[in-house]
């Protein structure tokens, strides 16, 4: 093992005008690391203090904006303007995901899971099953427990696309996380009934 005082001198250099760090090396890992470094440097320059503030307390301004976008989206959804609602949710998602990286990840997860779940609903209202399924999955990825709506929405989308087996597995996992949520249990029963029916008809496409 190497001596703790020693290090590998890397062939890095600094651009005098843009202050970006570059390297003549072809190592992919080094290039990726340098890209990350330059991005972090850029986002560090945007803040007032010299160093990133501690994760808590949080900058409330951005949270308020995200909430506002979600409310606008919800309003549009209620009025039946689904594409508009999707636009609002997408803006909100961009806002939440471009938070500086050193802000609390738990907060980002919360905001993102709600927005993805709502966007999935809007997509479902327009029968965009693929987008709905992907968004609901993203929502679950952000928040696994206490997110039964998103579990149900992806299950529904999969059923609509005829992916019965996948839907069954998904809802099964959802029930493990959510306990006995009535909506999920209902959907699982529906899926099982459909599965039986498809077996009887021996049809390749099961919708």
């Amino acid at each position: 093992m190497e001596d703790p005082e020693s290090f590998t001198l890397l062939p890095v250099s600094i651009d005098p005008t843009s202050k970006a760090i570059t390297s003549t090396s072809h190592s992919r890992a080094l290039q990726a690391e340098l890209t990350a470094l330059n991005e972090l440097h850029k986002s560090l320059k945007n803040i007032e203090s010299a160093v990133p503030p501690p994760p808590i307390p949080v900058n409330q301004k951005r949270s308020a904006q995200i909430n506002k976008l979600r409310e606008s989206g919800n309003d549009a959804f209620r009025k039946g303007k689904h594409p508009e609602a999707i636009k609002f949710y997408t803006l909100g998602l961009q806002m939440a995901l471009t938070r500086p990286l050193w802000e609390p990840s738990g907060l980002v997860r919360d905001e993102v899971s709600g927005l993805y779940a709502n966007r999935a609903q809007a997509h479902m209202a327009m029968s965009n099953w693929v987008e709905g399924a992907v968004d609901a999955e993203a929502s679950v990825e952000a928040k696994k427990a206490g997110n039964s709506k998103a579990w149900w929405r992806r299950g529904r989308c999969l059923v609509e696309m005829g992916r019965i087996q996948e839907a069954k597995g998904w809802i099964g996992r959802g029930l493990e996380m959510e306990g006995t949520e009535a909506d999920l249990v209902g959907l699982l029963k529906e899926i099982e009934a459909k599965e039986k029916k498809c077996k009887v008809f021996e049809k390749e496409i099961c919708i």
């Binding site: 290090f7 590998t8 001198l9 890397l10 760090i21 080094l30 690391e33 340098l34």
Partner: peptide
Amino acid sequence: LSKDIYLSL
């Protein structure tokens, strides 16, 4: 890697 970059800088 990032430690080496830091020290190289």
